[in-house]
Design a protein around this nucleic acid. Structure first.
Length: 718
DNA sequence: TTCGCTAACTTTTTT
DNA sequence: AGTTAGCGAA
């Protein structure tokens, strides 16, 4: 251990050796904070005789937690497995599985992901007979989540939030929606993501004994990525640390990128106020990136005002210049990246593995994927359509959820007629009416279905059979045996087997993959339960599924990239409207968060950074002209390679898009002969504006002058 | 009453 | 691309 300590720089060493009392560690990007946290834990265990049972380390993703465990294991060996290293959500789920009965929930509760949540909100709106167009479920979901993050209850919502929006019918209705939603959750014995945190805080508020138990258990607490905690998580940490004050939080206000999820940057800025006796340390030496890359990052983030002032420095050499490319469109942008990857692979033995491509929105991955596939470059995409959100996977998971928690009507509704059993919306509605009248769950109504005269006898029998199917399985049986029997008994696969299409085949493969996932889970966990598997699945994050051992290029959003590093980084779509995103340029705060996002992207790069954008980009049906991001202007020009731009080929480009799309291109010119479906042949007289919104005036042979919108004109070029 | 087909609409970031 | 509303057929 002592030998290990020698490898730390003075500040890192000081942080590792600071054991008692609150510690605020402001750790810049690439400053070795994970190293500090793991060494600190190892130091506590080995040199101070602290029991690993008394240590809680909270990270942002399960992957980060696993990584941390691995590194602690490396330092101290097997005892490391007793350290609680997990995410906020997983830790809380674990606590609630033990103690939630103290606050009136059943310990077999189900955790709803955001899709389940959405179903429930839609159901609430339907019951209240509210128009979904005026009161969008997504907006409601957002409001509720934000309220929960701020520890605001349905009863307090009106006073604390709605009152700030006078004469806003939507805001005024919110308390009702929120309350109904929460009631529904409770009736279903279900918790959403935010409930995991808020109910743990409730538990601690209501039971002093339980709180004290966990305070004493977690005498040493470490929170990573503290800048991304929300108010509710702050309350949780504060409660846990209140007795012993051995709380070490690590964060970087410059990397706070989750305010849309309720992250409160004040949690880090105000830590010193909460704990007056706090020791604050700054890790400002960057070990990750070349000087050029770090200089670019520093210059960009220097334009933010709301931050603790600091400047990262590095002893690393300047390295190569930053590549900047302005492509013709998203396909050209993708081709540039592929060219660079292939080039590097040939010249300097860069592996695919070393390369990552970051974008602002998931939709941007499409063009990149197509290009990579065309060139046969192996890649993995993090996020987007997650495996566990695939329709067929969710169906099977819903079966499992219903087996362990029959009160879960969201899952019940999902599968009662999947595969088709001849139980339609009308019968289901009658079943639910019956349940509502008797104040029983829908599943209990199924058990009494023979007595429901409103449902036809034939359908009653079908519903009864469905009930029997679910009751066939024991919640306590081994997950693997249950899923195998379930696939057999439910005839679920038959619908795809009959189909035989590629799509159906891939669905069957996905279910097989789910079975193997359960098998793997059973191998790892000696106390495997269905509930445990479902929990690990629901709380898994995109990043958790990332494989670092395969030689593939990795694609992900800038948000997902946080905490990672790659030798070669490509940032694409660095344009106004995308980064900063169009929806986040309303306020100074939002814009600064976009800048931090850009900063996070830049600082992921170790050796080489490429920044790319496009002159025009396809948005839905149309093309839009795009302007380079203001963040590019914030990088000193001398850090860039010679700036390259799309060069139109001599002859007309044989493009990869189909002719229909080509017409919506701004590639018209005055004097051009064009054909219109209705107006026939004509010559372009004037063009006002650019891109899809341009107005083109055409002098038609038959019908005279007409002005058309470029995007709708549908002109054939002669 | 259930089911399958077509057409329209939407995409910021996520535990 | 994936969901959803609406319509006609079984």
């Amino acid at each position: 251990m002592n030998q290990l300590l020698e490898s730390l720089n003075p500040v890192q060493l000081e942080a590792v050796q600071h054991n008692e009392g609150p510690l605020l560690l402001l750790a810049g990007a690439g400053s070795g904070k994970t190293r500090v946290i793991t060494y600190r834990i190892a130091h506590l265990i080995q040199d101070h005789g602290i029991s690993p049972f008394n240590i809680l380390a909270v990270t942002f993703t399960n992957k980060a937690a696993d990584e941390m465990k691995k590194r602690i294991d490396h330092l101290v060996g097997d005892v490391s497995q007793h350290v609680w290293a997990s995410t906020f959500h997983s830790s809380c789920a674990r606590i609630l599985r033990r103690n939630i009965n103290q606050i009136g929930y059943d310990r077999s509760f189900t955790i709803y992901d955001s899709k389940d949540q959405m179903m429930l909100i839609k159901d609430v709106l339907k019951t209240l007979q509210v128009d979904e167009k005026l009161n969008q479920p997504k907006a409601i979901q957002n409001r509720i989540s934000m309220a929960k993050n701020r520890f605001i209850r349905p009863t307090e919502y009106g006073e604390k939030i709605s009152s700030q929006f006078p004469n806003n019918p939507f805001e005024e209705a919110m308390p009702v929606y929120y309350e109904q939603y929460q009631n529904q959750l409770r009736d279903n014995n279900a918790l959403d993501f935010d409930d995991l945190i808020i109910l743990t805080v409730d538990l601690f508020n209501q039971s002093a004994d339980t709180l004290e138990y966990y305070q004493d258990k977690f005498r040493y607490i470490m929170v990573d990525e503290y800048q991304d905690t929300n108010h509710c998580q702050y309350l949780l940490v504060r409660a846990l640390a209140a007795k012993h004050h051995n709380i070490c939080v690590v964060g970087d206000d410059d990397q706070s990128i989750y305010s849309f999820r309720g992250a409160d940057i004040n949690n880090i800025l105000d830590f010193e106020k909460d704990y007056p006796e706090v020791t604050t340390m700054r890790l400002e030496q960057n070990y990750r990136s070349t000087k050029n890359i770090l200089d670019a990052a520093n210059e960009v983030i220097g334009n933010n005002n709301i931050r603790k002032s600091k400047r990262l420095w590095t002893g690393n050499k300047a390295g190569t210049s930053i590549g900047l490319y302005r492509g013709f469109d998203e396909n050209d942008e993708a081709n540039y990246i592929i060219k660079k990857i292939t080039e590097r692979r040939k010249l300097r033995s860069t592996k695919y593995n070393d390369c990552a491509i970051f974008y602002r929105t998931n939709a941007q991955s499409r063009a990149l994927e197509e290009a990579l596939r065309y060139e046969n470059i192996p890649y993995q995409i993090i996020g987007g359509h997650r495996f566990y959100e695939r329709m067929e996977v969710k169906d099977i998971l819903a079966y499992l959820k219903l087996i362990i928690n029959p009160a879960d009507t969201v899952s019940l509704r999902r599968i009662i007629n999947v595969p088709r059993r001849g139980i339609g919306a009308t019968s289901l509605g009658r079943l639910e009416d019956y349940a509502r009248q008797r104040r029983i769950s829908t599943f209990e109504a199924i058990e009494q279905v023979e007595t429901i005269s409103a449902i036809k006898a034939g359908t009653r029998e079908k519903i009864h059979k469905f009930g029997q199917l679910i009751k066939l399985f024991q919640p306590s049986s081994s997950p693997l045996s249950v899923i195998i029997d379930l696939l057999e008994e439910s005839d679920y696969l038959e619908q795809f087997e009959k189909d035989g299409s590629i799509e159906a085949r891939s669905r069957i493969e996905n279910i097989q993959e789910l079975v193997s996932a359960i098998a793997r889970y059973e191998e790892i966990d000696s106390e495997a339960t269905i509930a445990g598997f479902l929990e690990s699945v629901t709380l898994a994050s995109d990043i958790d599924g990332m494989a670092d051992e395969n030689d593939v290029v990795t694609l992900m959003t800038l948000h997902s990239a946080k905490g990672l590093e790659f030798p070669v980084v490509f940032m694409v779509g660095v344009e106004e409207g995308l980064l900063p995103h169009i929806n986040s340029t309303g306020s100074k705060e939002e814009l600064e968060e976009e800048r931090r996002l850009c900063y996070v992207g830049i600082t992921r790069a170790q050796k080489q950074l490429y920044i790319a954008n496009a002159m025009r980009r396809r948005t839905g049906r149309n093309f839009e002209s795009r302007v380079p991001s203001r963040f590019i202007d914030e990088i000193p020009p001398d850090l860039f390679d010679q700036i390259s731009e799309y060069q139109p080929p001599e002859r007309k480009l044989v493009s990869s898009f189909d002719p229909d799309e080509e017409e919506m291109d701004g590639g018209y010119f005055v004097g051009q002969i064009v054909f219109h479906v209705k107006f026939g042949r004509g010559r372009i007289a004037r063009i006002i504006g650019v891109g899809g919104s341009a107005r083109i005036t055409v002098r038609f042979d038959r019908s005279g002058e007409r002005t058309l919108m470029a995007q709708y004109a549908n002109l054939q070029i002669a």
